[in-house]
Design a protein around this nucleic acid. Structure first.
Ligand SMILES: [Zn+2]
Ligand SMILES: [Zn+2]
Ligand SMILES: [Zn+2]
Ligand SMILES: [Zn+2]
Lengths: 131, 131
DNA sequence: GAATAAATGTTATAACATAACATAATTAGC
DNA sequence: GCTAATTATGTTATGTTATAACATTTATTC
């Protein structure tokens, strides 16, 4: 029997593990890595990820089927991710002019945006400068 | 025995089927719908999609795991997709200022963009005006 | 402390994607 | 035309990502 006062719940376990990682992790990577913490079923991982997502603490990287903690400096701007296909690094950026461009587009088309997915696959500065 | 002169190959079959659809289709929807055309294995569908993608004739909608024909009016701009979570419609847009915003960002960060994934989930104009 | 709600556990299965290897069709050079 | 090389296709199996369904436990409220 464990109490929430003394022990971490599944959501906290997943968050704590995820927040130290540079690259995003897939649900099954989390499952594998957190077996030792008592997380043994996919459902458990996905439920934790869902809660963290709702709380705005993590992002799902759609083109990788993977998950990463939020930098938490959004400031009303939409997050965009640069994903390096060489080293796997993923960096979150907030950019006012990009956010404005998207708002202008959706205003023009009458589209009500809810969840923008902005990801750029390519090569990070470290990987493309090492010629 | 069939010849390519008289019969459509798998890539053409998939393309022809996809190009009349408003909403994108998943690989397994294609597989199911094209059984009658002799496409009976996932591999066949995925190989056709890969070729069409390389040819720039279709896009993969990452957040839906689905595929849609390209509008073919890119004109050096990056495609962005408005995805209606109510009716399932997906519309492709080309927007110069958005493209510029992303180019500015990647230039600033030294990132070499290869494949931008720009998708906005939300509610299309038809669905959000019918109150 | 009984009723309700929230969280967790467990098993099974659905949905999406690729690996590995065999065979057939096309083409390019002779 | 014949052969070799290449490209396309077929087939089977399996890997990967995500959710459904239902039971049990824990926490909260009255
Ligand atoms: Zn964020
Ligand atoms: Zn890199
Ligand atoms: Zn396009
Ligand atoms: Zn709609």
């Amino acid at each position: 029997m464990r109490t929430s006062q003394n022990n971490l719940n599944n959501t906290e376990i997943v968050y704590n593990y995820l927040k130290d990682k540079e690259a995003p992790l897939t649900a099954y990577e989390l499952l594998n890595d957190l077996h030792s913490k008592g997380i043994v079923a996919p459902t458990t991982v996905y439920r934790a990820l869902e809660k963290l997502l709702e709380a705005g603490l993590i992002h799902r990287i759609e083109s990788l089927n993977a998950w990463k903690v939020c930098c938490e400096t959004h400031n009303k701007n939409m997050p965009i991710f640069e994903i390096c296909d060489d080293c796997g690094s993923v960096t979150e950026h907030l950019d006012a002019s990009l956010t404005q461009s998207i708002k202008k587009l959706t205003k023009r088309t009458g589209f009500l945006p809810n969840n923008p997915i902005l990801e750029i696959r390519g090569q990070c500065v470290d990987c493309n400068s090492n010629l």
